[in-house]
Amino acid sequence: MPRRTLLIVDDHRVVIAGIRSLLDSLADVEVAGEATDGAEAVELARRLRPDLVIMDISMPGMDGVEAAGLIREVSPGTRIVIYTMHSDQRFILELFKAGISGHVLKEGPPSDLCAAVEAVMHGGTYFTTIDPAALLRQLAPERDGKAPLLDLLSPRELDVFRLLADGLSVKEAAARLNISPKTVETHKYNLMEKLDVATTTDLTKLAIRHGLISV
């Protein structure tokens, strides 16, 4: 089995050195290059076509998220492991959707990184904090399903919705709610965006369907 080529990207040379010494213990990988920012990383990936890139996110110039997308473009065969201090769930989900193969927290034990490299080298994925695939599976039905539509609306938006569906003008609704017409205008626009309707007529239909007003 040929040695796998590796690219390390971090804006701190100390970190690069640390990763290097950590991966020395792995027999079948070879560090082919180092980069200290996103642009350099994309250039090296295009040139070296490494099997793996270990990359930080917070870097000057082009950040890791953008660089990851570009590397997937210039070298589709390259797999990417993000080695970072960010652990936000949404962030990791976003990375997963962008085609990242692994996410390792810098604050975790160094063995995590080794494990991630091993797993990804063998075609798998490695996420230290959450399992994004499972999370996606868990979230998907909630988004697609019949989540109560009106829960999207705030109490004030519901008020506006009722009044407008009842046939009041923005001005009248504003007078009724004792707020400025401009505010009502904003609420109206927002609730139409939330409910994804284009006209006041649709709004009325929707209100009837949800029993907000009676015919």
Partner: peptide, 28 residues
């Protein structure tokens, strides 16, 4: 200590804005 510092740092500077954009950062 790393975790504490991260928490403090995040409160001081929302770097999520940089790598996630406003919507995701607010979501977070």
């Amino acid at each position: 200590v790393q975790r504490d510092i991260k928490s403090i740092s995040k409160g001081l500077r929302p770097d999520t804005l940089e790598y996630m954009g406003l919507a995701q950062a607010v979501g977070t």
